[in-house]
Nucleic acid binder design. Structure first.
Length: 708
DNA sequence: ATCGTCATTTGT
DNA sequence: CAAATGACGATC
């Protein structure tokens, strides 16, 4: 613009605007606006400006921008044209800092705190109220609990829109299912009382340990049907696809097709949105799913269930990393609904709910336990190797060999659980058992691939790939190597030789079997991939337990018991000859928990240990991960409550000769009562980082699963 | 991304 | 001393 121009743009625009909008607060004029104002607005419209809606023209909008310092609502005006379409909870497009962004309309009012002229909403993407008030409150609460942003949680809670699906007519609400006759819960202490409380519509908080061999999907379906028959909604979250299939089948049997839906990743955008909308619109009462279903907006929820809460699949890997158990607890609390935290084993977190008095224990009656548990035999380091030639080659303990032989002779399948898939992943010195490391980069040595071709290949480094032909142990000088973990494939080969003529089936990452027939077979699988056996397994061999327990992880003990019990629960009771052989020392508490089938006792031990060490759930923690400089800056900026304490930082990943690494991790610990303050401090520090546009990424996680 | 605000530099 | 430029921070 040239300086000869008589009046600069800002000179003519500003005063008229001040006249049209004398009071900024009056900008969103009420329907009772004066005629004079109307006339002026009409003039404004002729110039291309817009009129505000006649009623509640102020919209509280949450914009889809993942910056922590913008984690709040912004006020916009609703133009008259969008008065009908702009309903609370709908998706909108707004101009925010110059660019068009997506957002959600939370509510409409007629006042604003904002001192200046409000911008108009650009358009209403759809009037479908995908973010109703209860869902917003939940997402806000989850964001606050984890020190994250609402936007991040909304991304987890609301699936992407599919316009075509949205246009389809909504199904009518399903008929109320009949209340089932529930007798099977009487096998449990407090079981009948729990069902009665559910039926009466009072909130029951239960920590349930299923008896070995229990048809847990059937029990949970019964609980769901009791609640659904009273007209209230149910959300059941399970770890994976296979559990979901069983759960769905059990629910269909009791409640019929229209009342139940499954929400699961991998459905495709259309079907995913279709089912989610059916839940939102109240067409289904019972929602089953994997972790994303924890946010399912079911109408009038009466019951929330998490099955196998120790499975790490229940932790969402996206920021702010919410855990299914936490989210469902929150929902049960605000909705005055019931909560069931269930599994064969019990986590320290579940034990904490019981010990704090918030939840009631529901466990099997003693007599029922005796009648349903298999006989468990531990086998330590100094075991008798089976005399059978092939079994000797596989280094199979004679107890295990006998148990398997007996089960197969009885016409039953045998489950063999190995801790990791793959073919001999790790190597150690055959003499002193020091892990074998690459001489060049200190990476772990492993044998490459299978050896079906019979060609023996030298071990090589898993990091740099260099083969090592002349291995010598760094500690004792021995040239001998042994497998640290025998993978499923190798185990299957060896067992097949030991029991020639018996079919060997494997269930693992590549092919997961849902069930196997009740016929003699060896079923080799990795934890979590155990197929259900028709009539139960005759025996289970839990091999390489020392590898599971030896993991450098605070949760190793708990995780081992969980995996063992999940497998052992599929075995026939001892009264029908069911046997479990576990490859670990009898003196270990994890082994004792399995032998006595006492998950509650073990959870008590675990919780006591956490209390002693000052770890979650007794204390609240946050992990901060990033470059050393970024971590140090965050720690420095973090306004910790009085109970706050910083552990570390410690290097992560590869470490150079000075003990430094590219990435570091620090833990911050506070008293449990300061959990909210910790989350708020993290949110505030994160907001300052975002406002400063710090380029270094950091990862902050509250109550992370991996602690050491 | 884009706008306004405020401090600093530049042009008489 | 006013106008032009630039850094910065908020973003309705």
């Amino acid at each position: 613009m040239s300086s000869s121009e008589p009046t600069p743009l800002w000179d003519i625009v500003v005063p008229p605007r001040a006249q049209t909008e004398p009071e900024p607060k009056a900008a969103p004029a009420k329907a009772t606006a004066s005629k004079a104002k109307r006339a002026k607005s009409a003039a404004a419209e002729r110039r291309g400006a817009q009129l505000p809606a006649p009623e509640n023209p102020v919209a509280k909008i949450v914009v889809d921008i993942p910056l922590t310092h913008l984690d709040r609502t912004f006020d916009y005006q609703i133009p008259e044209k969008l008065h009908e379409a702009a309903v609370p909870g709908c998706r909108v497009r707004v101009r925010f800092a110059g660019q068009l962004v997506d957002g959600f309309l939370l509510e409409r009012t007629d006042t604003t705190e904002y001192e200046r002229k409000l911008a108009f909403i650009e358009r209403v993407t759809s009037s479908e109220p995908v973010l109703p008030a209860p869902l917003h409150a939940l997402c806000r609460s989850v964001a606050d609990r984890y020190g994250g942003t609402l936007t991040d949680v909304l991304r987890l809670a609301i699936p992407p829109r599919h316009a075509k699906v949205e246009a389809e007519p909504a199904a009518l609400p399903s008929a109320q299912p009949l209340r089932p006759d529930v007798t099977s819960w009487s096998r449990y202490q407090a079981g009948p009382a729990f069902i009665e409380t559910l039926g009466a519509g009072r909130p029951a908080h239960a920590v349930w340990q299923a008896l070995p061999g229990e048809d847990w999907p059937a029990r949970l379906a019964e609980a769901a049907a009791v609640v659904a028959s009273a007209g209230r909604g149910v959300v059941i979250v399970v770890p994976d696809h296979r559990d979901l299939a069983r759960m769905h089948a059990a629910c269909l049997e009791l409640m019929g097709e229209e009342a139940v839906t499954s929400l699961i990743a991998g459905l495709g955008p259309a079907e995913r949105y279709r089912r989610w909308l059916a839940v939102l619109r109240g067409s289904v009462r019972v929602v089953l799913g994997t972790r994303a279903a924890m946010f399912a907006p079911v109408a009038d929820p009466g019951l929330f269930v998490v099955w196998d809460d120790g499975d790490d699949l229940h932790l969402d890997p996206h920021a702010p990393y919410p855990h299914v158990r936490d989210v469902l607890m929150d929902r049960a609390h605000t909705a005055k609904a019931s909560l069931v935290v269930a599994g064969f084993a019990r986590t320290a977190e579940a034990q904490f709910l019981v010990e704090s008095g918030w939840a009631q224990t529901v466990v099997g009656e003693r007599a029922e336990l005796r009648a349903s548990a298999p006989r468990v035999t531990p086998v330590g380091e100094d075991f008798d190797v089976a005399r059978d030639e092939a079994a000797k080659a596989a280094r199979l303990p004679s107890v295990a060999f006998e148990a398997a032989r007996q089960a197969l002779a009885n016409g039953a399948p045998v489950l063999v659980q190995v801790p990791r898939r793959g073919y001999v992943p790790g190597l150690a010195c055959g003499n002193c058992r020091t892990p074998a490391h690459c001489r060049r980069c200190a990476g772990p040595l492993a044998l490459p691939g299978g050896s079906e071709d019979g060609v023996a290949r030298p071990p090589s480094c898993r990091w740099c790939g260099v083969p090592d032909t002349g291995f010598r142990c760094a500690a004792c000088g021995s040239p001998r190597l042994r497998a640290v973990i025998v993978g499923a494939k190798r185990t299957a080969e060896e067992l097949g030789r030991a029991f020639s003529g018996v079919p060997v089936r494997t269930s693992g990452a590549t092919e997961v079997l849902a069930s196997v027939p009740g016929k003699p077979a060896l079923v080799v699988c990795t934890p979590g991939a155990e197929p259900v056996a028709e009539g139960g397994y005759g025996a289970a061999l839990l091999l390489d337990g020392w590898a599971l327990l030896g993991r450098p992880d605070l949760r190793a003990g708990e995780e081992t018991v969980r995996r063992w019990m999940a497998a052992a629960a599929l075995v026939r009771p001892s009264t029908s000859g069911g046997r479990v052989v576990v490859g670990a020392e009898a003196g270990l508490s994890a082994v004792q928990a399995l032998v006595r089938w006492d998950p509650v006792w073990h959870a008590g031990l675990e919780l006591a240990e956490r209390r002693e060490l000052g770890f979650p759930p007794v204390m609240r923690m946050a992990s901060i991960e990033g470059s050393p400089a970024a971590v140090a800056a965050v720690l420095d900026d973090l306004a910790l409550p009085a109970s706050g304490e910083i552990l570390g930082p410690v290097p992560l990943g590869e470490v150079d000769e000075d003990g430094r690494s590219e990435r570091e991790r620090a833990l911050v610990r506070v008293a449990r009562t300061d959990g909210k303050a910790l989350a708020a401090a993290i949110h505030a520090a994160s907001a300052r980082r975002d406002a400063r546009k710090e380029p270094e990424p950091i990862r902050v996680q509250l109550d992370p699963l991996e602690l050491i």
